[in-house]
């Protein structure tokens, strides 16, 4: 690791101020950032830990029934505390990494990083969640801009994410056997006004909505509705662990399983 300064503010305002320094970077749980630093692939002048900010911690149900999760809330906390209100999202959080990683990794860190194979982006986009930052609110549909790219400005912090709770939802994750990120992960959420289907792990462009599947399921919410649907393999990722065609196939299988799980 290159040398850097470390700061651990206790308020969002202080964190924003600290991030004003040149090449300062926010530190969530560090479960991706620290390995990156070890490889010397990043050289921040200062890391600003968000783990000491009480207002960014925890899971709570808002008056409108939506679930608000503080940006610095760990995956383990979400898995535990969202289980009653939003079981599918809690289940997703409980499938990220491994127990020790879940005790450190945070929702804000994961969503801000937007790894193309991460789980949370599928849950956030699939839930039509709202990303709340220190300056604004961003709809999930406008947030994810391609792999490792988001609508966040420099120094902008995800303070919380607000999830409308669907009638029913399911996350189906097919493991990449080495990293145990998603080789393909499909999040399906059924709201009163329609179904959302999001896919992670599969595309060069990061998380995306599979609109054809959404349309088909809006017409008829059962596994067979997907029968003739195939996703175009052209934009899929091809690597050691699966070809484009295989990933495209898995998108269909995982989506069908998500529907079955919601029946």
């Amino acid at each position: 690791m290159y040398s850097f300064d470390f700061e651990k503010p206790s308020t969002v305002a202080d964190a924003v101020a600290a991030l004003g320094a040149e090449d300062a970077q926010a530190l969530g749980g560090g479960q991706t950032l620290i390995p990156t630093l070890k490889q010397r692939l990043a050289a921040p002048s200062k890391l600003v830990s968000l783990s000491g900010i009480a207002e960014m911690q925890g899971v709570c149900v808002e008056d409108d029934g939506s679930l608000s999760i503080g940006g610095a809330t760990t995956h383990a906390t979400v898995a535990r505390e969202a289980a009653a209100t939003y079981p599918a999202l809690a289940a997703l959080a409980g499938q990220i990494g491994d127990p020790a990683v879940r005790n450190r990794g945070t929702i804000g860190g994961s969503v801000a990083n937007n790894d193309p194979a991460a789980c949370y982006p599928a849950g956030v986009l699939g839930s039509a969640a709202t990303i709340v930052t220190n300056t604004r609110q961003i709809a999930a549909d406008a947030f994810f801009e391609g792999m490792f790219t988001t609508a966040l400005e420099e120094g902008e912090i995800i303070t919380s994410i607000r999830f409308p709770v669907p009638q029913v939802a399911s996350y189906q994750k097919f493991l990449q056997p080495a990293s145990r990120f998603a080789l393909v992960g499909v999040y399906l959420a059924r709201f009163a006004d329609g179904v959302r289907v999001t896919v992670t792990g599969a595309s060069e462009d990061g998380v995306f909505r599979w609109s054809e599947a959404e349309e088909a399921l809006n017409k008829e919410f059962r596994p067979d509705a997907l029968m003739d649907l195939r996703i175009n393999p052209a934009n899929m990722i091809a690597d050691l662990h699966g070809s484009k065609a295989y990933r495209a196939h898995l998108v269909s299988v995982m989506t069908k399983r998500a529907v079955e799980a919601c029946m």
Binding site: L27, Q31, I34, P35, S51, A100, R104
Partner: peptide, 28 residues
């Protein structure tokens, strides 16, 4: 160096944590 092997696992405030993937300063 990628937080997979778990040989470095310790407890921090009672929770399992990979100590090679946490800054010492965070454990202050």
């Amino acid at each position: 160096d990628t937080a997979q092997c778990g040989a470095c696992l310790v407890h921090v405030n009672g929770e399992a944590v990979k100590s090679c993937n946490m800054l010492a300063a965070e454990a202050d």
